[in-house]
Amino acid sequence: MKVINKVLIPSCLALLAGPLSAAELDIKVTNLTHGIYFTPLLITAHTSDAHLYELGMAASEDLQKVAEGGDISGFSSTLATINADSSENPAGGLLAPGASTETMLSTTDGNVHLSIVSMLLPTNDGFVGLDSWSIPDEPGTYTVYLNGYDAGTEANNEIINGGGMPGVLGIPVDPSGNNGTGAVGVTDMEENSMVHVHRGNLGDTDVSAGMSDLDSTVHRWLNPVAKVTITVN
């Protein structure tokens, strides 16, 4: 009987330890788009019940801050209260089209799901996201492709006016400077207030008027918009 106990107990612990224990992750994010920048990325490992966003659900205020203005400070505070392990702004600013950034993330016990958010710039409230991806126990390299989502919090008027605060209509900036000015606006409606797949920028080719300040030959994309490589050490 004693022998059985000695054999069984350690192996049970080993089984439990796998999915719940700390991990060392190397994470690489590549911006796959032609002309869309990623604002400072937030990469976080958290418990399985946490989400930065969920498809078909309304955006949180923290997500709205990211999607409309690239501000991750709200999530930063919230994640601290749930003891998440985060890598904030690994690229040290914007992640340009075609560029990659790499970061290491040490996760503590229980933080077994990975999430990522960053604003797609220039958009009104578009973001690239990974929602609560289960970190594998098995060491290895895993690749995930991410889509562009719409937070559903702001009308996609496509006017560049510096508006990046939550509730302020407009796009903060086009980092590439390919934008026009003087647009009348694509729409002043937000029909779908849930987080959904972004329908893309419309844009136009009129640099001094038209519906959109965005350039339809530059600022469009098709999913996926990001490639994430996660190495579990």
Binding site: G148, V186, T187, E191, V197, R199, W221, L222, N223
Partner: peptide, 8 residues
């Protein structure tokens, strides 16, 4: 423009 969509 509202009826545009991307995958998925």
């Amino acid at each position: 423009q509202a009826h545009k969509f991307d995958q998925p």
